[in-house]
Computed example of a mutant assay.
Amino acid sequence: MAEAAERQLLVMLPLPKPHFRPGGGYGGSYGEGLSSPARRRLAAELARLHGLELQRDWPMQPIGVDCFVMRLPAGDDRPPQQVAEQLAKDPRIAWAQAMQVFRTQADTRHKPLFAAQPAASQWQLAELHRLATGRGVQVAVIDSGIAAQHPELVGQVIANENLVDERPTPAESHGTAVAGIIAARADTAQGGIGIAPQARLLGLRACVQRSETETLCTSLSLAKALLAALQRGTPVINMSLTGPPDRLLATLIDQATARGQQVVAALDRGAASFPASHPGVLAVADAPPLPSGAVLAPGRDVPSTQTSGWGLVSGSSFSAAHVSGLLALMRELGGSREALSRGALVTDANGRIDACASLLARSSSGTVVHCHRLVKTPE
């Protein structure tokens, strides 16, 4: 995946304005008529003029572009970003960019099994579940493939789409671990319990697990996943991954934010850390120090679902999953856009989330809970 992506470019051609588009809706009739073939002819012409191979396209109606994938031919050693900059000078193009590669944020150095979930004590999970369990809330997991038939995830994954290739979604360890932290079932006699055990997951496979230590995604696969989450209106979008700044993904994230959807992303303190660094995205880490606006959540030695059984995981990928689960609880209680914002989370001076106080601030049920709060609930 990474090797192919390094030779690819994404070229955005503007879609017609909605009232000029042929047909009445996106999907069934969109793309029929003159506008779609005309864009393909233009893309083919641009590829020929710039010495590129045209591969495929993916219409992205919410942001008004048709995304064409082009590739440098074998033996062409031009830097892809340089070619993209040349393409972008053409006024018929909305923009062009090199394909970026993103990596999940798992730390595989910590492997010994540990019986207790950190959230059980740090977040007093049993008490939280007296207030909310995430019932009726959907969370999009943009990641590698989820093992939807795992005993702790059966019935939790409402869709498991493969946006990398045409095959059925494979079971991969990173996406499965993230899914388990968010929504592992509470009604089985084994394993642990998710932060939001009655939430439902939209599995969007945009990443490929190449080995136990490496899971990779590209600009296009992540864009397809964000587009799917946008079209479904999923209120919480988990992206336990990081990479370089990317205009296409930023544009889609801005659309999600404008619609009241909250993107949660893993923080990588040693790099540019996009999308966590993008405005409106909730950046989550497993340890300090933190940039402004980021939060801390459990992420070390966390038992979670694996493709077979349970295992121990560590890293900010899994801290982000904790926060996505917490936001699902808050969404159940509050249901408003405010419930999904950074400002609705109660934290201490170091950015550590007080999950109990965050939920109590949203609850009006009168349920009595006994949480030892880390910080006071704001007046």
Rank of each mutant, 00 (worst) to 15 (best):
L329C: 07
S292C: 02
V346L: 08
A294H: 01
A321K: 07
R300K: 13
F318L: 06
G335S: 10
W310Y: 14
P289E: 15
G335C: 07
A339I: 04
L296Y: 05
G293R: 03
V313C: 03
G325A: 04
S308E: 15
R337E: 12
W310I: 10
L329V: 12
M330G: 01
A349H: 08
S319V: 00
A287P: 01
A321Q: 08
V295Y: 12
A321W: 07
W310L: 10
A328V: 11
A339R: 03
S304E: 11
T347L: 04
G311Y: 06
P289D: 15
E332T: 11
P288I: 01
A349S: 12
G299L: 12
S324W: 02
W310G: 02
L340W: 07
P288T: 06
V295D: 07
E338I: 02
L327P: 01
S317A: 14
P303M: 13
R331S: 13
G335A: 11
V346H: 08
S317C: 06
L333Q: 05
L329M: 10
V295K: 06
A287D: 12
R300N: 12
L333A: 11
S316E: 08
S308P: 01
S292N: 08
T305S: 12
S314C: 11
G311A: 14
V302M: 15
G343K: 09
V295S: 11
V313F: 15
G293H: 08
L312W: 07
L329N: 06
R300D: 14
A294S: 05
R337P: 10
A339P: 06
L340I: 09
P291W: 04
